[in-house]
């Protein structure tokens, strides 16, 4: 069970959240190219290691959280609010 320490609600099971993928991509601004939007939608980090990802706490505070999680061990290292950038371990 992945357990996420929500900054608003405390430690909760993964079932309370909805995953929404890579949290490092940034939506291009108005007038950006098709290429830029293509990358926003389709070019996603898929590392074997630390991954920064969106989790939506739908059954809690309804906030999007930035979670730093390892894709081999599933360890959750950091949880940040949507507007913060958590520290990502090198290894």
């Amino acid at each position: 069970m992945i357990r996420i320490d929500c900054p608003w609600c405390g430690v909760r099971d993964e079932v309370e959240f909805t995953y929404r993928g890579d949290a490092t991509v940034v939506r291009p601004g108005e007038g950006a190219s098709e290429e830029a939007f293509h990358d926003f939608v389709y070019k996603r980090a898929n590392p074997r290691g630390w991954h920064v990802e969106w989790w939506y706490h739908g059954a809690g505070c309804r906030q999007f959280l930035k979670v730093v999680r390892h894709t081999m061990t599933h360890e959750v290292r950091a949880v940040a609010r949507a507007t913060e950038m958590p520290e990502v371990p090198a290894e």
Binding site: R20, G58, F64
Partner: peptide
Amino acid sequence: MQHMEFYLQTV
């Protein structure tokens, strides 16, 4: 609802 929250909170 989730779509709206996503764009509002993250974009």
